[in-house]
């Protein structure tokens, strides 16, 4: 693998980590209810990266970057979100979804939507909501 290939891999690794971090913070584990971190999020984000189109991937990535960078705006703490305590991170996750700036709110909405897609389709969550588990998505089509 050349330098360019390695650079791309590193960028993807960071992007996946950012998205995963934001999703987990937006829908954390709470007593009696699984959070995104309990729903196979690592594999989910990798699959999403592999399968999604550029517009939606870019939107979610952008939202995750904003989530990481904006604690100063939401809670007045000049640190990236990954350095916040649990309590402050939770406060940041709460505030960032209701910021008055639409162009920030919308990419965050996209990350929240992805968190919801990962969380809500997991068998443990569906059991908690009295719903039967989803069968696997076949991902098949008529080839001929």
């Amino acid at each position: 693998m050349g330098c360019a290939g390695r650079a791309v891999d590193e960028v993807v690794f960071v992007a996946v980590w950012l998205i995963r971090f934001a999703m987990c913070a937006l829908m954390p584990r709470t007593p009696g209810l699984p959070g995104v971190e309990d729903t196979g999020v690592d594999e989910w984000v990798r699959t999403f990266r592999r399968e999604s189109g550029l517009p939606i991937w870019a939107g979610v990535f952008f939202g995750s970057v904003l989530f990481m960078l904006l604690p100063l705006v939401t809670i007045g703490v000049p640190l990236p979100a990954c350095f916040l305590s649990h309590r402050l991170l939770d406060k940041h996750a709460q505030k960032i979804t209701s910021l008055p700036v639409y162009l920030i709110r919308q990419p965050i909405f996209l990350v929240k939507m992805m968190a919801g897609l990962c969380w809500g389709s997991h068998p443990d969550v569906r059991k908690h909501l009295h719903l039967t588990p989803y069968p696997a998505d076949p991902g098949t089509w008529r080839a001929a």
């Binding site: 913070a25 937006l26 829908m27 209810l33 709460q94 929240k112 968190a115 919801g116 809500g120």
Partner: peptide
């Protein structure tokens, strides 16, 4: 479906999880 409800409810963090309950 629940996976869409989660994004339609306001808030983030533990506040959102209280809402989806």
């Amino acid at each position: 479906p629940p996976e869409m409800v989660a994004s339609r409810l306001a808030g983030g963090g533990t506040q959102l999880m209280e809402h989806v309950r």
